[in-house]
Amino acid sequence: MGTKLDNFLDHERKIRSWPAKRSNQKLVIEYLGSKFNNEVEYSEAEVNEIIKQNHTYNDHCYLRRELVDYHVLERTGDGRVYWKPRQEAESE
């Protein structure tokens, strides 16, 4: 029994395609964001390497921008330092 996310992952759990629907894009970006640790500062090269290790279609620049656009990662104005923002507890 798979999840929606499984539709976009290969057998190694790497992202194999970019979804058309925004709701599915968010799932994929949140999954990719789970590969980053809280309270760690990453260089752009380190972010690129983590992304490259977790997708198969060779567009790490696009995925890096999406991580920032979805606020899964934050970055300094010059793009030299990235980090995972603190998540407030969400009440449902």
Results as ranks from 00 to 15, higher is better:
residue 56 T to K: 04
residue 45 A to C: 08
residue 35 K to H: 12
residue 64 R to Q: 08
residue 60 H to F: 12
residue 57 Y to W: 08
residue 39 E to I: 06
residue 28 V to N: 02
residue 64 R to F: 04
residue 72 V to N: 04
residue 78 D to T: 13
residue 65 R to I: 13
residue 55 H to P: 00
residue 56 T to L: 06
residue 76 T to D: 11
residue 53 Q to I: 02
residue 79 G to M: 04
residue 38 N to L: 14
residue 79 G to N: 08
residue 75 R to H: 07
residue 77 G to N: 14
residue 32 L to T: 00
residue 76 T to I: 06
residue 34 S to E: 11
residue 73 L to K: 00
residue 32 L to I: 06
residue 60 H to N: 09
residue 76 T to V: 06
residue 40 V to R: 01
residue 65 R to M: 12
residue 45 A to D: 14
residue 44 E to V: 11
residue 77 G to V: 11
residue 72 V to R: 01
residue 71 H to R: 14
residue 68 V to S: 04
residue 58 N to I: 10
residue 63 L to A: 07
residue 34 S to K: 07
residue 49 E to P: 04
residue 30 E to G: 08
residue 66 E to A: 13
residue 54 N to S: 05
residue 72 V to Q: 09
residue 46 E to Q: 11
residue 65 R to Q: 13
residue 56 T to C: 06
residue 32 L to F: 02
residue 73 L to V: 06
residue 42 Y to F: 10
residue 46 E to V: 01
residue 66 E to S: 12
residue 75 R to K: 14
residue 62 Y to M: 15
residue 36 F to M: 03
residue 66 E to Q: 15
residue 34 S to P: 00
residue 56 T to F: 03
residue 33 G to W: 00
residue 76 T to C: 05
residue 68 V to F: 07
residue 69 D to C: 11
residue 39 E to C: 06
residue 49 E to W: 06
residue 29 I to A: 05
residue 39 E to S: 11
residue 37 N to G: 10
residue 77 G to Q: 13
residue 51 I to A: 01
residue 40 V to C: 04
residue 39 E to L: 11
residue 55 H to L: 01
residue 37 N to K: 13
residue 59 D to H: 12
residue 56 T to A: 10
residue 59 D to C: 13
residue 62 Y to F: 14
residue 77 G to R: 13
residue 70 Y to T: 05
residue 63 L to H: 00
residue 79 G to C: 10
residue 73 L to C: 02
residue 32 L to H: 03
residue 38 N to W: 11
residue 50 I to L: 05
residue 45 A to K: 14
residue 37 N to Y: 10
residue 41 E to Y: 12
residue 59 D to T: 13
residue 68 V to H: 05
residue 31 Y to R: 03
residue 75 R to A: 10
residue 41 E to C: 09
residue 29 I to C: 03
residue 30 E to A: 09
residue 33 G to L: 03
residue 28 V to D: 02
residue 62 Y to A: 14
residue 37 N to A: 15
residue 43 S to K: 06
residue 35 K to W: 09
residue 76 T to M: 07
residue 39 E to Y: 12
residue 57 Y to K: 03
residue 29 I to H: 05
residue 47 V to M: 03
residue 37 N to R: 09
residue 53 Q to F: 01
residue 76 T to Y: 05
residue 77 G to L: 12
residue 36 F to R: 02
residue 50 I to E: 03
residue 40 V to E: 11
residue 26 K to R: 15
residue 71 H to S: 15
residue 26 K to E: 15
residue 35 K to T: 11
residue 50 I to Y: 02
residue 50 I to S: 00
residue 69 D to N: 14
residue 61 C to Q: 14
